[in-house]
């Protein structure tokens, strides 16, 4: 289970595959999640707005491998915000392809009057909905949270999706989320705050 896959499924409708969030917020969130995967695998670290490659050993996942190569090529001046924006540009498609290979989504074409459009639809809506339900349950419980889940909920909250996860959850869950957000370790905290700031700037830049 990859971080960006989880974020993708939470951010899209479990039946229709339509986005729940503004596309740019999803893009930035997915880019951050892909970087988060590399952090979890101890390949990169973030400090003072820059990404440092710690270990260039190829990760097992092809997408993660591509991104790690990309980041390695940018050393030593690899700017986090630039990477969020650039990776964000193609993250939705890249992650959807990965989900497709795992059999979790499939591409459905719809014909409108003049053009054909399409989107990825979850193959099993229950599976897709479970990703959100699991987080809600986790936050409501006292179970231990993994680093995977810490980064996931922090990024979801940074892109404005905390409300979706917390919907109908008891007040304890909100407090627990707050607690998690207050204690993020250095690299993760930077990734999360920069993602939140990038989403905010995208909103400010929408005038055009």
């Amino acid at each position: 289970m990859w971080l960006a896959d989880d974020l993708y499924l939470v951010a899209h409708h479990d039946h229709t595959g339509r986005p729940h969030l503004h596309p740019r917020a999803i893009q930035l969130g997915l880019a951050a999640a892909l970087l988060g995967e590399l952090m979890l695998a101890d390949r990169i670290a973030v400090q003072h707005g820059r990404i440092y490659v710690r270990n260039q050993q190829p990760p097992p996942d092809a997408l993660a491998h591509t991104i790690l190569d990309r980041l390695a090529g940018q050393q030593p001046h690899c700017d986090l915000r630039t990477e969020l924006s650039v990776i964000g540009g193609s993250a939705a498609q890249a992650v959807a392809h990965r989900l497709e290979r795992a059999g979790l989504v499939h591409y459905v074409q719809t014909r409108r009057l003049t053009r054909t459009t399409g989107r990825w639809v979850p193959t099993d809506p229950t599976q897709a909905a479970w990703r959100t339900a699991r987080l809600r349950q986790l936050l409501s419980s006292r179970d231990e949270v993994t680093w995977h889940d810490v980064i996931l909920v922090a990024l979801l909250s940074a892109i404005g999706a905390a409300g979706r996860v917390l919907r109908d959850a008891d007040p304890q869950a909100r407090l627990r989320l707050k607690g998690i957000l207050a204690q993020l370790p250095g690299s993760v905290a930077e990734l999360v705050t920069h993602t939140e700031a990038a989403v905010g700037n995208a909103i400010l830049a929408q005038r055009r």
Binding site: D79, R81, T82, S85, V199, G200, N201, A205
Partner: peptide, 30 residues
């Protein structure tokens, strides 16, 4: 502004390099 969370007071790159913040140029109808 929106960057308040990060505490950076200057654009993250010198303006002569890539021109700073990254989310520029997205969602724009030119």
């Amino acid at each position: 502004g929106a960057n308040a969370a990060t505490g950076h007071t200057t654009p993250l790159l010198p303006p002569d390099q890539t021109g700073g913040a990254a989310e520029a140029g997205v969602d724009r109808q030119q």
